[in-house]
Amino acid sequence: MTVDPTPVLRVTDLTTRFNTQDGTVHAVNGVSFDLADGEVLGVVGESGSGKSVTMMSLLRLIPTPPGEILAGQAIFEGDDLLSMDLGDLRKVRGGKVGFIFQDPMTSLNPVVTVGDQIVESLAVHQPGRRKAMRLRALELLQLVGIPSPEERLRCYPYELSGGMRQRVMIAIALACNPKVLVADEPTTALDVTIQAQILELVKGLREKLGMAVIWITHDLGVVAGLVDRVLVMYGGQIVEDAPVDEFYAQPRHPYSQGLLASLPSATSRGDKLVNIQGQPPDLRSAPASCSFAPRCPHAFDRCDRENPVLAAVSATRKVACWLDEVPVLVGAQSDETAKGQVGHGR
């Protein structure tokens, strides 16, 4: 990975809420992370932990109302995605940031041919002669490994299988050579063999095209094989931010530990599966305490009083847990702890 001092995307303190009839849902609470150029970032967490909403919020794709992006910045190439006007944002969407959705069965328009849907993206960002755009669409279908692409261009989505459709989705997302590709659980709706193919495809494309990838998933196996760095989300917050090998070797947050412990392994055959006791938090109240505390085996009185802030515990890792409050390692901590102190005041 190229080590670039300025991240391609820097998200700080992103907060998104949904104002529903049952009250305000605090879906994303002060999420901050960096995405380095060319990096593959895995975002894991259970359903409702705010993974998708975070990424949708970045491109302001959440419906408003009921959604509302309350605070935060998302600096992409020097501009804040969250405050730029819609016209500029439209140039980023699809042009510089590609988005792949979870379910290929529903994310293609059923009444428009595959070719036209790819051309649509090109027409928005790199308008040219229709013939040239068709040619580029053909090239893209070849790139994502669709056989006899000339014929497929004229196909309607219902004539393609799930795996083929997801390839088309990837082709659309890649149409304008984006700097960042956001993949929102792109393999969840596919069966395992197709999943593996799509993973291989994205890996290969990333090496070929060199874009940064944000891969949202709840499959830790996928994470291990693909990503450079892991973000663990829980209750709308990032609880751990770690390089992938360190994350597997030594998860710091009790939730990450629980997640990894609940993975079945080949040696534990016949044993009962380990699970994390309890229910995910109700997001209808603003987090005042650690949202994982009720399920945490190590919870102590401070966890019920204050919400831990994501703080650096080493040069490469950040954890939001009071257990890690006492810095274990020295170096580059002073300002981070200071940031943590400010957070306590809130």
């Binding site: 980023v92 969407r93 328009n109 928005v124």
Partner: peptide
């Protein structure tokens, strides 16, 4: 509400 509409927005369609 369907995903392909969100997908259309996500590629910058007006």
């Amino acid at each position: 509400q369907q995903e392909f509409v969100a997908a259309a927005h996500s590629i910058g369609t007006r």
